[in-house]
């Protein structure tokens, strides 16, 4: 349940669910996010600019001209524990193709040296993991997924790369992510997906949502090129 409610500046409210990064806690954050979003859509709350779920917090940015911190706190505290415990509906499991060829999986050797596992063991574990999307952010469509098997634990690169290709599937510490755009970055690249995670021209611009699950499967370079 919510451990504390704090102000974040004069137009922000933090719902803090404690310090742990755990799926069970994050599911409650996402439940609260959905409840607040439902109230926004039904005009039960006005003046919300943004509501951002992360591992263990829901941060609400409100318009001080419309609603005060005190009024918003009351609404948040009126949400019942039992509502947060309801199992989320519409949680999807996405099967995402990845080309693990050397051309794209440029950090497989580094991961292998760090973990002591062979490359095929690494790819096997990566494909057998059911990843959970804790949050989406940093840039449009970027999923923060966990939990990576402890055996694959590899730190970030000491010097981030200037450019990582869009679609790169990356791991660092206990997390896995996919870059929707070309970007600089310091995570280890295991492969590349041809799937577009974000497209502002599409009807459903963002493929993934917080609380969804993701599994990866291997495709070869030819299949990758066909799907791009």
């Amino acid at each position: 349940m919510i451990k504390q409610i704090l102000n974040f500046g004069d137009q922000g409210l933090i719902c803090d669910f404690g310090d742990e990064v755990k799926k069970e806690i994050n599911l409650k954050v996402i439940s609260l996010f959905k409840i607040i979003n439902f109230k926004i859509k039904n005009n039960e709350i006005q003046g919300i600019k943004n509501c951002t779920p992360s591992y263990n917090k829901l941060i609400i940015n409100f318009n001080l001209e419309v609603i005060s911190f005190q009024q918003l706190s009351k609404i948040v505290t009126s949400v019942q524990e039992q509502d947060l415990n309801k199992i989320l509906e519409n949680q999807k499991t996405w099967k995402i193709p990845v080309c693990y060829d050397e051309e794209y999986g440029i950090d497989q050797k580094r991961i292998s040296e760090y973990t002591g596992l062979s490359i095929s063991e690494i790819l096997d574990i990566h494909q057998k993991t059911n990843f959970y999307i804790y949050m989406i952010g940093f840039m449009p469509g970027f999923p923060y997924m966990g939990d990576l098997d402890d055996k694959l634990y590899t730190p970030r690169l000491e010097t981030p790369r200037v450019e990582i290709l869009d679609g790169s599937v990356i791991i660092a510490e206990k997390f896995c992510a996919i870059y929707p755009y070309k970007s600089p970055g310091g995570w280890n690249i295991v492969g590349r997906t041809p799937i577009k995670l974000f497209d502002q021209h599409s009807k459903n611009p963002c493929l993934l949502f917080p609380g969804d699950n993701v599994e990866f499967y291997k495709i070869n370079l030819e299949e990758f090129k066909k799907l791009v």
Binding site: F8, G9, Q11, G12, D19, V21, N50, T52, P53, S54, Y55, N56, K57, L58, I59, N61, M135, G137, F138, M139, Y144
Partner: peptide, 27 residues
């Protein structure tokens, strides 16, 4: 632990030099 940003946040990375996040901040 990464969390939502609101514009105007003043973050301090390891360098100890503050960065104020403006309107197009990362989320």
């Amino acid at each position: 632990k990464s969390e939502g940003i609101i514009k105007g946040s003043i973050q301090v990375p390891a360098s100890g030099q503050p960065i104020i996040l403006l309107s197009d901040h990362q989320t």
